[in-house]
């Protein structure tokens, strides 16, 4: 029995011009302490399905699934208070735009202490001390000073570290990272990924890593789900996916990696469509 189990998840958005299906019959499962990568280009619905798990989709979204359970608990029909016992405590999430993901009107210290005080019932002083530990754990330089900083006074990499610190504050069992490095400089990307992997190990969490970067997948994941236009294309453990990709779309993604390029032109995923159309 997997920790997170999703069967036949569909998410539709009502728009001014009609209904739009973002996720179309996806199955996903994650075991504890496992690192799962969900790969796909933008618009493939990979974030939407995880936002559905978190209950973070707007009211315009309609979510249906045969099953969506965490530890056997049904996530589809949770009341607000029941959901909050899981979300932000046992399941946490970090996002693509770290600076925009932090509230510009409050110090980052306030924002992490808030989690500690409200979710874990700490006093102000306890929360302050624990926040400092967490900031050290995620490698924020001059952590005491940074507790009093506002997001706009910090770099993107530092903000993502703050987000990670908030996400691990309650020692979650599952951390969902939605393109955590996409908005960052290349040099910082590696550091953040390493940090996530270290923490995953240390805390014994499961990690779902949403990414469009096959390179990231190769370095981190145990298992991979490839998604395209809201549908699952392929699912495999990471070795067999890279050794023998089954689906033409996966092959297209892999051949789009610069190091796999042959000839003088980088292949693109649209080559996949041309070969599809030619068939």
């Amino acid at each position: 029995m997997a920790m997170l189990n999703i069967r036949n998840l569909t998410v539709r958005f009502a728009t001014a011009t009609g209904s739009f299906t973002a996720v179309d019959g996806i199955d996903v499962h994650v075991d504890s302490r496992e690192v799962l990568a969900i790969v796909g280009e933008s618009g493939s619905g990979k974030s939407v399905s995880m936002l559905a798990v978190m209950g973070l989709l707007p009211d315009t979204a309609t979510i249906t699934a045969d099953e969506m359970t965490y530890d056997g608990r049904d996530l589809l029909h949770l009341s607000g208070p029941e959901r909050r016992k899981l979300i932000g405590r046992e399941i946490t999430m970090i996002f693509q735009e770290p600076i925009a993901s932090l509230n510009p009107s409050f110090t980052v210290g306030f924002q992490i202490e808030e989690v500690l005080r409200i979710n874990l019932g700490m006093t102000k002083a306890q929360a302050r001390a624990r926040a400092l530990e967490l900031f050290k754990a995620v490698g924020i330089p001059a952590p005491e000073e940074k507790l009093n900083a506002y997001p706009h006074q910090m770099s993107g990499g530092q903000c993502q570290r703050v987000m990670i610190a908030m996400a691990i504050a309650s020692k979650p069992r599952l951390l969902i990272a939605d393109e955590p490095t996409t908005a960052l400089d290349v040099t910082i990307q590696k550091q953040i990924l390493d940090l996530l992997m270290d923490l995953q190990e240390e805390y014994g969490m499961a990690l779902i890593l949403i990414t469009h970067d096959m390179g990231v997948v190769a370095e981190t994941a145990d298992r991979v789900v490839v998604q395209y236009k809201g549908k699952k294309m392929e699912e495999a453990d990471v070795l067999s996916l890279f050794e023998a990709p089954q689906h033409p779309y996966t092959r297209a993604l892999l051949s789009a990696l610069p190091e796999n390029a042959t000839g003088d032109r980088l292949p693109t995923v649209s080559d996949f469509f041309q070969s599809e159309a030619a068939r």
Binding site: M54, G55, L56, G80, R84, K85, L86, I87, G88, R89, T92, M93, F95, E97, A100, S101, L102, N103, P104, E114, V115, I118, N119, M163, M166
Partner: peptide
């Protein structure tokens, strides 16, 4: 905004 989503993701009431 993203930060409101973050607040929800943190499990704030």
């Amino acid at each position: 905004e993203d930060y409101v989503r973050t607040a929800r993701a943190k499990g704030m009431p």
